[in-house]
């Protein structure tokens, strides 16, 4: 909307533009309110400084013509709250609640203090021999809709890619499915966003968003095949709800 967020941090996924729109919308709304309220506060402080011989007025604030000064802003806030709620739910629905059909599915496993990413490989199907597992390295194709299946082996972790404006906690004993669609090639940070012990700060990974040719070249170079951790069930979870609890 005003390009503030894009300036601070690149928007590298479809959800990033959505979330940033909401942040900037709220920024404009509450920014105006904040300036108005501070303006009135400071105006009153200067306007009604103590002057010799001038006595303060006696106002109870309980008469109708007095308390309208509180009730009108009160109702205006209600209106703006409704606007913010509508956009918040709309964007939340699109990013978290609604799960578009995936082109590929990856698995993300957190443990103290590293991330394991399982890429589906050339056949684009997880659980086959050509899966590629990488530690702290996630390789994505630009313009592809990914589902991720997220879990943890030990404590809570959190899957967070700031450039995607995406975050989801990983919980031991659950597999949480979500989605994202990278839109811009580049290298991005991947942070653990939930305190997970003394190595929390080194639980960092790299996300490489590549075009199809580069991605395939990288896949060609991957020789090792891995066996999936046995705590993953064969079938994915309820596909309609991104983060359905067990």
């Amino acid at each position: 909307m005003i390009g503030l967020m894009d300036f601070i941090l690149p928007q590298a996924s479809t959800s990033a533009t959505q979330v940033d729109f909401l942040i900037e919308l709220i920024f404009v709304i509450v920014g105006v309110w904040f300036i108005l309220a501070e303006g009135v506060l400071f105006y009153l402080i200067f306007r009604f400084r103590k002057k010799e011989g001038v006595k303060a007025q006696y106002i109870t604030g309980e008469k109708h013509e007095e308390n309208k000064w509180v009730h009108i802003p009160h109702n205006l806030i209600l209106v703006f709250d409704v606007i913010i709620i509508i956009f918040a739910i709309k964007i939340w629905y699109g990013v978290k609640q609604h799960l578009p059909a995936p082109d590929e599915t990856i698995r993300v496993i957190g443990q103290q203090w590293a991330w394991t990413f399982v890429h589906p490989g050339k056949d684009k199907i997880l659980g086959t021999d050509d899966d590629v597992a990488k530690v702290d390295e996630l390789r994505l194709k630009v313009g592809t809709t990914y589902h991720f299946q997220l879990t943890s082996k030990d404590v809570l972790h959190s899957f967070s890619i700031p450039a995607f404006r995406l975050k989801q906690d990983a919980i031991p004993g659950r597999i949480i499915t979500g989605w994202f669609k990278p839109t811009k090639t580049g290298e991005y940070d991947f942070q653990c966003a939930e305190i997970c012990g003394i190595g929390h700060g080194i639980m960092q990974a790299k996300v490489f968003v590549e075009n199809e040719a580069d991605h395939n070249k990288w896949l060609e170079g991957q020789k090792e095949h891995i066996v999936l951790p046995d705590f993953f069930p064969a079938a994915p979870m309820n596909p309609t709800i991104a983060a359905a609890p067990n």
Partner: peptide, 12 residues
């Protein structure tokens, strides 16, 4: 307000 709005809290 930023943090109470679900959509923005995903990032913040």
């Amino acid at each position: 307000i930023f943090l109470g709005a679900t959509g923005a809290d995903i990032f913040l």
